[in-house]
Simulated scan of single mutants.
Amino acid sequence: MLVALVALVVFPLGVSGGGADAELVAADREMAYPVLMARLLPAGLLGLLFASLLAAFMSTVDTHLNWGASYLTHDLYRRFVAPDASQSRLVWVSRLSVMLLTAMGVVVASRIDSIEQAWRLFIALGAGLGLPSMLRWFWWRANAWTEIAGIVAAVSSALVLYPLFPDARDEYLLLAIVAIATASALLATWLTPPVPDAHLEAFTRRVRPPGWWRDLPGAAPRRAMGWLGIAWLSGNAGVYALLFGIGGLLLGSPVPGALLVLGGLVGLWGAFRGSEAFRMASAPR
Score class of each variant (00 low, 15 high):
Ala231Glu: 01
Ile151Met: 06
Ala149Ile: 04
Gly218Arg: 03
Pro221Tyr: 09
Ala179Thr: 15
Met225Lys: 03
Leu161Gly: 02
Ile177Pro: 02
Leu135Val: 11
His199Cys: 07
Arg136Glu: 14
Leu173Gln: 08
Ala188Val: 11
Gly211Trp: 05
Ala149Cys: 03
Pro196Trp: 11
Trp145Met: 04
Ala127Gly: 09
Leu175Trp: 11
Val160Gln: 03
Ile148Phe: 11
Thr189Cys: 07
Gly150Lys: 00
His199Leu: 13
Leu186Arg: 03
Ala220Ser: 04
Ala179Arg: 01
Ala154Phe: 04
Glu201Tyr: 05
Thr192Ile: 11
Ala124His: 06
Pro210Tyr: 07
Arg205Tyr: 08
Leu174Lys: 03
Ala188Arg: 02
Leu175Cys: 13
Leu200Gln: 12
Leu186Phe: 07
Ile151Arg: 01
Val155Trp: 08
Ser133Thr: 14
Gly229Cys: 09
Gly229Asp: 10
Glu171Met: 06
Arg208Met: 05
Leu216Asp: 04
Leu131Pro: 02
Trp227Ile: 06
Ala185Tyr: 05
Asn143Met: 07
Pro196Lys: 13
Leu135Ser: 01
Trp139Thr: 08
Met134Gln: 11
Ser234Ile: 03
Pro210Val: 06
Glu147Cys: 03
Pro132Val: 07
Ile123Val: 15
Trp190Asp: 12
Arg208Gln: 09
Glu201Thr: 15
Glu201Val: 15
Ile151Gly: 10
Trp190Met: 05
Val152Glu: 00
Ser133Tyr: 12
Thr192Phe: 05
Glu147Thr: 10
Arg208Ser: 11
Arg169Pro: 09
Pro163Ala: 04
Pro209Tyr: 04
Ala219Met: 07
Val178Lys: 00
Gly128Cys: 01
Ala168Met: 06
Leu233Ala: 15
Met225Ile: 11
Gly150Thr: 01
Gly130Asn: 07
Glu201Leu: 09
Pro217Asn: 05
Ile230His: 06
Trp119Lys: 12
Val207Gln: 05
Ala179Ile: 09
Pro193Thr: 13
Ala118Ile: 07
Leu200Gly: 06
Pro209Asp: 11
Trp139Tyr: 13
Ala202Gly: 13
Ala181Tyr: 08
Trp212His: 09
Ile230Leu: 14
Leu216Tyr: 12
Tyr172Phe: 12
Pro221Ala: 05
Ser156Phe: 10
Trp213Val: 05
Ala219Thr: 11
Leu175Ser: 15
Leu191Gln: 08
Trp140Asp: 02
Thr204Val: 04
Trp232Val: 07
Arg222Val: 14
Trp227Thr: 03
Trp213Asp: 02
Phe203Lys: 02
Asp170Ile: 07
Trp137Gln: 07
Asp215Met: 02
Ser157Pro: 05
Ala188His: 04
Phe122Leu: 07
His199Gln: 14
Leu129Phe: 09
Glu201Gln: 15
Gly218Pro: 03
Glu171Arg: 06
Ile230Thr: 13
Leu164His: 08
Phe165Gly: 06
Ala220Asp: 03
Ser157Ala: 04
Trp137Lys: 03
Ala179His: 10
Thr146Ile: 00
